[in-house]
Amino acid sequence: MRKLQHISVHNFALSNGETTSLGLTYQVFGQALHTAPIVLINHALTGNSNVTGINGWWNDVVGNQNIIDTQKYTILCFNIPGNGFDNKEENLINNYKDFTANDIAKIFEIGLYTLNIDTIHTVIGASLGGGITWHLAVNNPNLFENIVVVASHWKADDWLIANTFIQDNILNNSNRPMEDARTHAMTFYRTATSFNKKFEGQKEAHFYAVENWLQYHGNALKNRFQLSSYKLMNHLLKTIEVAKSHEEFTNKASKIAGHIHLVTINTDGLFLADNNWETYIQLKPKKENLSISEIKSIHGHDAFLIEFEQLSKILKPIFQLSTLKRIGLTKYKQTAS
Score class of each variant (00 low, 15 high):
284 K>L: 14
241 E>K: 15
142 N>G: 03
97 K>F: 00
286 K>G: 08
104 I>P: 02
36 A>N: 05
83 N>H: 08
10 H>Q: 14
272 L>K: 10
141 P>T: 11
270 L>V: 14
189 Y>H: 13
294 E>W: 00
210 V>R: 12
120 I>L: 05
86 D>V: 02
198 K>R: 15
231 K>C: 03
23 G>Q: 13
41 I>C: 11
83 N>D: 15
316 K>L: 15
96 Y>L: 05
218 G>R: 08
240 I>G: 07
230 Y>I: 01
52 T>H: 02
135 H>K: 05
14 L>I: 06
232 L>D: 08
141 P>S: 12
91 N>C: 04
204 E>G: 00
59 N>Q: 04
2 R>F: 10
262 L>C: 13
222 K>L: 14
255 K>P: 03
122 T>K: 01
200 E>K: 15
215 Q>L: 14
4 L>T: 05
289 N>F: 12
231 K>Q: 15
140 N>A: 05
329 L>Q: 12
200 E>F: 04
221 L>M: 13
126 A>V: 09
333 K>E: 14
105 A>S: 13
189 Y>D: 06
73 Y>I: 05
336 A>C: 04
302 D>L: 07
114 T>M: 02
47 G>C: 08
32 A>S: 15
320 Q>H: 11
88 K>T: 11
275 N>T: 14
76 L>M: 08
249 F>N: 02
252 K>Q: 15
168 D>M: 01
232 L>N: 07
146 N>Q: 07
284 K>W: 10
289 N>S: 14
24 L>G: 07
18 E>R: 12
42 N>M: 04
243 A>N: 07
151 A>D: 09
241 E>A: 13
325 K>M: 13
47 G>L: 07
65 Q>M: 07
186 M>D: 05
108 F>Q: 07
100 T>G: 03
132 I>H: 04
317 P>W: 09
279 T>L: 15
22 L>G: 06
73 Y>H: 15
170 I>G: 03
109 E>K: 10
98 D>V: 00
162 A>T: 14
305 L>S: 10
327 I>Y: 01
3 K>I: 06
253 A>D: 02
130 G>C: 08
306 I>P: 02
183 T>M: 15
195 F>S: 11
28 V>G: 09
83 N>A: 03
316 K>V: 00
192 A>P: 00
310 Q>D: 08
50 N>E: 11
18 E>W: 00
256 I>Y: 01
118 D>V: 00
254 S>M: 07
116 N>R: 14
89 E>H: 12
11 N>A: 11
27 Q>K: 14
278 E>V: 08
11 N>C: 02
263 V>A: 06
275 N>W: 00
8 S>H: 13
149 V>L: 05
327 I>F: 02
253 A>Q: 03
332 Y>G: 03
191 T>R: 03
285 P>V: 13
127 S>E: 05
167 Q>N: 13
23 G>C: 02
315 L>R: 01
318 I>E: 02
56 G>P: 03
287 K>M: 11
67 I>A: 10
40 L>R: 03
257 A>K: 15
301 H>T: 09
31 Q>F: 06
100 T>Y: 02
82 G>L: 04
37 P>C: 10
49 S>R: 02
61 V>D: 00
148 V>S: 04
117 I>Q: 10
126 A>E: 09
217 H>T: 04
172 N>F: 00
71 Q>K: 14
197 K>C: 04
44 A>M: 12
92 L>T: 08
9 V>L: 08
246 H>K: 06
283 L>N: 01
192 A>T: 15
